[in-house]
Every structure is written in structure tokens, then in C-alpha cells.
Amino acid sequence: MDLSRIGYFVRRFSLDPSLIIVIVLLVVVVTAGFLLSDRFGTMRNFMNVLEQASGLGYASIGQALVVIVGGIDLSIGSVVTASTVLMAAVVNVHPALMIPMIFGTLFFGVVIGFVNGYVTIKTGVHPLIVTLGTASILNGTVLIYTLQPTGSVPYWFEEFSYGRIGNVPISGIVMLICFLLVWVFLRYFQAGRALYAVGGNPEAAHLSGIRSNRVILFAYSASGFFAALAGAYFVSRTGVGDPRVGDPITLASITPVILGGLILGGGKGNILGVCLGVILISLLSNLLNYMNVSTFIQWVIQGLIIIVAVSVYVHKGKKL
């Protein structure tokens, strides 16, 4: 195909150039998958991957929103953990409270996110330190409450992660809908555009009449909300509240955000890139598992992918 056609498509669908790298990697992984494994390219496998990807997906949406306003949220993993334990522990004692507790857990996430945002704004402390502090407090509290997986939820809640509509996993549908809603919000709503404005240049945003503090508060609250949603997904998947389940999520949620072309420091990037990043990471680990590549080598590959993805483009200007 002639190169100018590619340029045309890029402009026609207003593709962010930063999306190209994740699309290229995705094509490489899928092609390699079809060539190297006969079990990879089946519809059943793709649906399974979609189901498994959603926990990471929810967490990444939250991380992406915070990164867009120029922050970073290192408390995501601990919010995931705390919400699984909270939900499973309460529902274990009062099974009738299952549905209120779903909303209660999401509200809990919003509160933690709000606190993160509030402290960041009011003290001017770097979000890295603030969210690290909240993470430490939450983790400590959860570990004082329990050291082992605890609690239980009714069986029907399993449907949230394992349920299928036709052949498509419910959790995957919910994740894609979330991504789509956030994309529409960021692209077509004034409040959504404000996130980019604040991330790009807080002072300029303030001068043009945007209430930066509210926008930042909103982004952190949303991050807490999606972390709690990821927590609900993990409860649904395992049926218990595990005080360790969120540990790897914090750093894992950053990888798709970076692969998707968002820049630490804020103001740039497309949330659909993050969606592709989540799918890429999940497909890659799925493929490597089929190829019997050890987890240890998968870590090396993951690290190298981050390095390649961020060092292909030389970003000018501010960094975190």
C-alpha cells in the first residue's frame, strides 16, 4: 500500500500519532499468535482474554484520567485490595447487603480518590508522595484486619466476571463500555476537554476560566471509582476479599497507559490507546503462556516493551 494512503487514514480518523505504536505492536502480536500457536487464534481464546483483561482495564481507565491531568495514582492497587476486602467482609456477615455494598464499595473508592486529590491540591505535595502515603495507610489497615483471604459473596455475583451474553463476557462488555463512555466524555464534553487543558498547562487553564482544582479532584475521584470497580471484578472472580490481590495492579495499570501514548506529565493522549494497550498486554501474556515462556521471561519482555514504547518518541517538555 502506498504510504500517502496511510497518512490519509491517520488524518481521516484523526489518529493520534502516539496510537501508531500500540497498533503496530498489536498487529505484530496477533500475527505472531496466528503463526506460532494454533490455539491462539480462536474466538473462544479471544473471549477468554477479554474476560481476563477487564480487571486491568478498569484500573487503567482510572490511572489514565489521573495521568491526563498531570498526576499519577500509586494508590490504585491498595484501593483495589481494600474494596475487595471491604465488600467480601461485609457481605459475608450480611448477605442481603450485596447490592447496596456494590454501590458502597464504589463510593468508598470515590472517597479515597477524593482524599488523594484534595490533599494534592491543598498541600501542593507531589501526587507520587500523596498517593504513596494513602496506599501505605490503606494497605496497613487492610493487613491489620486480615492477613489471609477472607469473607465471601453470593454465587450469583460471579456473573459479573464469568457471565456471558451469547458468547461475549459481561466483564469485557462493561470494560469496553467504560472505555467508550470515557472517550466520549473526554472528546465531546467541555468538562472532558478541561482535563486535557489542566494537564497541559494548569496556569493557562486557570486563566481561561477552568476551575483546575475541581478538575483535578474529579480525575482522582474517578480513579478511585474505577479502582473500586476493579476490586468488585476481583471479588466476583475469586469470591473472597484478598489482602494481596491489588499489589501488582498499581504498576501494571501504568503500562497500558504508557503504551497507549499518554505522557506522564499530562495533557496528551487518547483513552482508546489505553484500551488497545490493555488488550495488547493481555494478548501478549496469553500468547507467551501458550508458547510456554516462563513468567520470568515475560517480565523481561514487559520491561523491554515499556522502554521501547517510551523511547521511540522523544518527548519534549515536562516530565514526571
Binding site: I72, L128, L251, I254, I258, L264, G265, W299, V300, Q302, G303, L304, I306, I307, V310, S311, V314, H315, K316, K319, L320
Partner: peptide, 15 residues
Amino acid sequence: RNVSPFLATLAMMIV
């Protein structure tokens, strides 16, 4: 390469 220190060292940690 102008990679943000957070990411460069995070990737190094994982590798």
C-alpha cells in the same frame, strides 16, 4: 532518550 525517570527505572526494575 528523554524517558521520564519514573518509567525508565520502573522498566529497569521489571527487567
